[in-house]
Structure formats: structure tokens, C-alpha cells
Write a protein that binds this DNA or RNA. Structure first.
Lengths: 145, 145
DNA sequence: CTTTTTGCAAAGCTTTTGCACCACA
DNA sequence: TGTGGTGCAAAAGCTTTGCAAAAAG
């Protein structure tokens, strides 16, 4: 999802229309610079847009972007769905204590996916892998406790 | 979580009390033989218990068992929380199409965890890893479609 | 007896849906 | 002009919470 106009073109290419609401949602996602976010993040961001898109529209737009393949929901167990921009390919390690998300080195992911493919016959979506763990600061905090 | 009585003893050891509701929930979990289940599964199972524990009690008991360390919620993005019995150590691969859960070979998991530890300084909870993929039957179905 | 646990009912949260109106292409 | 999108409001689904009554140790 490199630039706003490019993405809007992709929406058109998929038979979708370009509307102010969709511009606002895309702008919010692109401006944030973050590669991970929740619907709530987007809702907060478009809160300042004019005209302000409705909650339902934001959800529907996220769904659209997911269908088109520009976003993917991460398999996490939080209270909300975390989306991930697919223009940044990598796995994720999420700290179960503080929620920090760190990227998994590409090679480690490829090796793991390949092993799993051989041993379980599952095709891993390397771009959508998330594992839970404890980040260094939180691990240290737990030791001192 | 090997046997009912052993587990009840653990609850006592943690300062908890043994009640009919907790017996019922534990029995449901142990009898199912399944290592993965949702609150809904447990609710359905205890539905036949007498006296029948309340929904809230079931949720509170699952929370208790999680605190004690006998259960862990898996990081998945389903509509409901999937719990995993910690007496079976393994990772999970979940098919994003049909939801099937397959176990990850221990060694592959250890290798991956060790790589991540070195490269990201995250400590992976190997017992609580879940990755998304597509199982062989579903992958085949998609190809034919 | 004291403290924990339960049941009941209601609320909380994120996300989804139905429907009439509006607007992009 | 016609299909697709939007806003509004209400519902759905899972989970949590407050509180008084009941029970475990």
C-alpha cells in the first residue's frame, strides 16, 4: 500500500468506487506510518476527517482492503482485531505483557514455514504469522518482581 | 492437568476452594479429551451437569485455571477464545479456511524459538504458539476452484 | 464464622446488519 | 441513471461485572 493514489487505483481496478470515506480511511492508515493497527486506531484517526466517515463505513472499508489483499488481520487474541499492512512482509512477535510488536527476521520465518510445510503439510502464510512471547524489558521486570 | 483430583488439589494449593461448579468444569474439560476448546464448548458440556454452573462461573473458572497455569488462551483471531491444556506442550497450526488445528513438531518449534530468542530477544512461549496457514485439503480445494 | 464463590441479570465491547438515502462513474 | 456506498440505529456475539445470597474451610 505504497501511496494513496496507487491504492485508490487498486480499488477501482477491483470494481470499487472512490469516495471521500475511503480516502479518509486510507489516508489515516498511510499517514500513521504504523504497519499494525486496529479498527479503533482508524476510527480515532478519521475522527478529524471532514466529512467524518461512519463507524460502519470504516469497518466495511477495512474489510474491502482485506479482500483486495492490502491488509491482513493478524491472528492475535486481543480484544480487537489487529490489521497488518501487506506492503511490509514479515512475521510478528507480540509481547503478551506489554503488547509490543516486533518483526520476525525473514529468514527465520522462511525456514520455519518450510519445516512446517514438510512436516504438517500446512502451507504457512508467512506474511501473517504472529507468535506470543515476552519482550526483553518485560522479561526483566518479571524476574525482578 | 492429568487427573481431576490432582487438579482440584492444585486449586486448593493456590488458595482456591473446591466447589461443585469447578468440579463440573474440570470434568467437562478432562472428559472431552480435547486439548483445545472454547468457553462455548465448556458451556455446552456443563449444560448436563447437576447443578448446572452459570455462564459467568464457567468464565471465571477458565480464568482461574489460566492463572494457575493449567490452561492458556491461544493467540488466534476467531470469534471466541480458544483455550489449550498446558499438559500437552506443542505449538499449533490453524487452518484459516476450515479452522482445523494441527500440532507443530516439538523440534521445529524449539529451533524457531531459539532463533527468535537470539535475533529479537523475545522469549517465546513455545507452549502457546499458533500460526495460521492452509491445510492440505483446503489448499487443494482452493486450487480446484 | 469468615472469606470465597455462585447465580442472576445487566452492561460492555467490538463488530455486523438492515434499510433508506445519496453519489460516484 | 443505475449500481454501489454511506449513515444511522439497532442487534449480535462473546465476555465481564455488580451485588446479594449461598457455601466452603
Amino acid at each position: 500500500m505504497p501511496r494513496l493514489e496507487t491504492t485508490l487505483a487498486e480499488i477501482r481496478a477491483h470494481g470499487g468506487r472512490v469516495t471521500p470515506a475511503r480516502r479518509a480511511v486510507l489516508a489515516a492508515i498511510l499517514d500513521a506510518g504504523e504497519h499494525h493497527f486496529t479498527a479503533a486506531d482508524v476510527l480515532a484517526a478519521v475522527d478529524q476527517a471532514e466529512p467524518q466517515p461512519d463507524r460502519a463505513t470504516v469497518y466495511r472499508t477495512l474489510e474491502l482492503l482485506t479482500e483486495i489483499g492490502l491488509l491482513k488481520p493478524l491472528p492475535l487474541n486481543g480484544e480487537a482485531i489487529v490489521y497488518h499492512r501487506t506492503d511490509h512482509r514479515h512475521g510478528h512477535v507480540v509481547c503478551r505483557v506489554c503488547g509490543a510488536i516486533t518483526e520476525v527476521p525473514e529468514q527465520a520465518l522462511i525456514d520455519f514455514a518450510s519445516t512446517l510445510q514438510q512436516e504438517t503439510h500446512f502451507t504457512i502464510d508467512a506474511d501473517c504469522v504472529a507468535v506470543s512471547g515476552t519482550c526483553e524489558p518485560c522479561a526483566a521486570a518479571m524476574t525482578h518482581a
